[in-house]
Design a protein around this nucleic acid. Structure first.
Lengths: 226, 226
DNA sequence: CTATCAATCCCCTAAAGAGGGCAATTTTAT
DNA sequence: ATAAAATTGCCCTCTTTAGGGGATTGATAG
């Protein structure tokens, strides 16, 4: 199988530089459909369409697009893997994921791999075209995806130091614990005796409901105290 | 000072239920401007406009809007604090932040407090109206905000288990360490002898360059291994 | 004024952990 | 086939930690 469109460098002298787009999608029908959509959109130019990441990667150096519309489910290398490779070789190329999947895991992995947008295949052509236009300034994503991304952000937050009723001094000690210091080193650092350190630790254990340093560190970090 | 608009319950029998919007914004000019914008938008209805969170909170029980457009910089309670209170009392009310600030900290805090959208004051009226219409299904935010949110998500990821060259078994042990288990409990859990556990731990310490369980746990969690 | 709490310090013991070396077995890679 | 690496297990000693007492000072709040 060959790429459906081999029309790299097809700039027919439009007034301003068009946004150069590459499509990576294994389903020929869908691929062609989106090539068509791009044809009709002002300011957008389809400079390549491939059915696998491997095929696209071979020609990227020559084509140098501004944006890639990337399917996730692909034969061979997955779209997410593809993003990693492309971003490594060409950090300035923006990538929009384009898929039927809207689970947290794929969204998260895609964004971390370097994708800057995430559209569902249920998106209207109008939405897709707008996504390309927004890509430089924003992070285009389907509405439901934005909701999920927002929840991903929220997950990393629930920090509330008051939760465990720790005193200021106990927080000092806990910080040292998290730094992996021994009782003695904490004593030196805080200018108190090792026994005092131990007293504080005992009370911290009671408040956090743990029985060892490693448990305390784990609980503190997992509660996002630090 | 009194709220500029006291027109709660002003439904003049439109065909479908309009989205009921409340505005909280201390600048009278801006407040009135957005009341006007809402007046002209189909399907949106301004059911209240207040110059402080305190004022809004007093009447929320009576008004029960669908969405609140919330400024951040407010006299008295900040918009972010306001979101926390409102979301506690009325979890189903959606809140869109509306501000000149686009720093990570305020964005992060707002979203964690419970806001579902984040618009910059530079947004066009058209964008604002669309935000209200999207609020149920999506998370409307200005393009540049979406970019920052995306970066916030990326921050929480850089996990690379290969970094430390740990073997599968060593990762098992490290997982147990992070759970705060003692050598004995790990041994029971993994069906090996406590001495073997200790052997693995010793090698883990070498690879992570640490000298205690608490240090190992700290390094593992801070490296986002788990 | 006095009770409470945070913070400091000390005693004790038993248990757990850190670090050293060594070796058998199995799995994996060359 | 053989070398390398992973996994398992044991020996040893010394230090650290966990958890149980109790005591003193100073600040804070009724």
């Amino acid at each position: 199988m060959k790429p459906t469109v081999s029309t790299a460098n097809r700039d027919e002298g439009s007034s301003v530089a068009a946004i150069r787009v590459v499509i990576v999608e294994d389903d020929e029908k869908i691929r062609n459909a989106y090539v068509q959509i791009l044809e009709f959109a002002d300011g957008l130019e389809c400079v390549g369409a491939f059915e696998s990441c491997e095929a696209a990667l071979k020609q990227l150096d020559d084509i140098l697009p501004d944006v890639i519309l990337m399917d996730i489910q692909l034969p061979g290398m997955s779209g997410i893997e593809g993003v990693k490779h492309i971003k490594e070789l060409h950090p300035s190329i923006e990538i929009i994921m384009f898929t039927i999947y809207d689970d947290d895991e794929r969204i998260f992995q895609s964004l971390c791999a370097g994708a800057s947008g995430y559209l569902l295949k249920s998106a209207q052509p109008e939405e897709i075209i707008q996504a390309f236009r927004q890509i430089r300034s924003g992070a285009p994503m389907s509405a439901s995806i934005a909701r999920r991304v927002l929840n991903l952000v929220r997950q990393q937050s629930p920090a509330s130091p008051e939760q465990f009723q720790l005193t200021d001094r106990e927080l000092d000690i806990l910080r040292c614990l998290v730094d992996g210091l021994s009782d003695k080193r904490m004593a030196d650092k805080l200018f108190i005796s090792p026994q005092t350190v131990h007293s504080h630790i005992k009370r911290i254990y009671q408040k956090l409901q743990v029985h060892s340093k490693s448990e305390a560190v784990s609980k503190a970090l997992r509660s996002k105290l630090f």
